[in-house]
Design a protein around this nucleic acid. Sequence first.
DNA 1: GGAACTCGCCAC
DNA 2: AAACGTGGCGAGTTCC
Length: 460
Amino acid sequence: MIKYNKEAYQLIHDGILALSRVEQQGICVDLDYIKKEKDKITEEIKKLENEIYDSNFFKVWEKSSKTKTVNIYSGQQLSRYLYKIKGIRIKKETETGQGSTDEETLRKLNIPELDMFLRIKKLKKIRDTYLKSLERECSDGYIHPFFNLHNVRSFRSSSSAPNFQNIPVRDEESMNIVRGAIYPRPGHQLLELDYNQLEVRIAASICKDKNLIRDVTDGDMHRDMAIEIFRVDKFDSTIEGHSKLRKAAKNGFVFPQFYGDYYKNCAENLACTWGELSKSKWVSGQGIKMNGVHLSDHLIKQGIKSYVSFENHIKNIEFDFWNKRYNDYYRWRETIWNRYQHKGYVSSKTGFVFRDLMKKNDVTNYPIQSSAFHCLLWSLIEGVKAQNREHWDTKIIGQIHDSIVLDVNSSELQMVLNVMNCIMCNDVRQHWDWIIVPLEIEAEISPIGCSWAEKKPYKF
DNA sequence: GGAACTCGCCAC
DNA sequence: AAACGTGGCGAGTTCC
């Protein structure tokens, strides 16, 4: 039998208390701004809808429809029209075998009405998922998102009402509109403290892979993999194309591999999504530009003349990645997978036990994902303690898996940064000596009185 | 008219 | 043998 782990219990106990304080403090939102933005969006949607309704594309759809009225927002109706009526060849299917109507698929069809439709969908997402929920959950100018510790299979957290953990950040326009509604308190600034590569550092601590420890301590694995994947001999991040290659290696290979993906998916994503190439024949002048040279020309010159040979190339890189570069990590995964199959459970470093029926990827990911999040949770608990003990005017207002969001009084900024840096990078390692690599945080901050959309990296 | 489902999309 | 991990949420749809 597994012993009851008092330490794991205590972490959740303290975590819930700290997070309830965070929830109670809340986050300022600007309701007038939200109303204005919603109206602007509604106007634009109306215009675009009318354009679609006036189009020949739509009229044919209406004539061929089985239903009385066409609902352009019904995936089923759209799928039937595109693939059954218009006879477009299905390139991607959904889980249930229906022709897909996701953004990537529709974009490739090059139909102007569908581009308008996708624009509407994006605007609706901003309005209906984000702005509406901020408005709905706002009381007296504040929202109080829940941070739950009891929902997630891996013992991470979740957030709801509204979900504070999926606010747009990558897409410029969505980011600006939604984060433009979120404000610090008067005289304050929004500060986000983000662990640098937390999950990878925790993975290195758990599997003790020598090369992984080296790379998170004093290296750049994404750059290294970009060099291998794209066969560039000298890497210069000041060249725009090269930082794109590094990003491609990171998001198209390294992370997916760590999560348990395999080379076929990686090859497709690297070539098509990140490299802007196609799976059909590679010809000159395709793909992202690096120093004026297109990726297709570069790869062809390097002897990778087609998608098929690129896939094979990625297969070899995957083999090296797990059998040479990170072989200790690979062996750790095999070991705990075997142990799970014999004993029926696996544990995190923080004392949590997973006894569900799990796939291999689950068994190897959960201990890492949970231990990483628990570092953040421990830091948050200590941060809230400091806030209370020292009577900060600064408030911890949220948490996003590996980052802490604060509403900081500008006069306390340097002090708060020092205290939080000490907690997040030093104290947590004293508490858990199994963390055997350095931890680092990065900061982003918005100017006084400005919304979260104005956040900028902050060196300290 | 609500529960449960699918699909799609936002975050880490 | 398997083949990307974790959530929340909105809209459409189907079932009861």
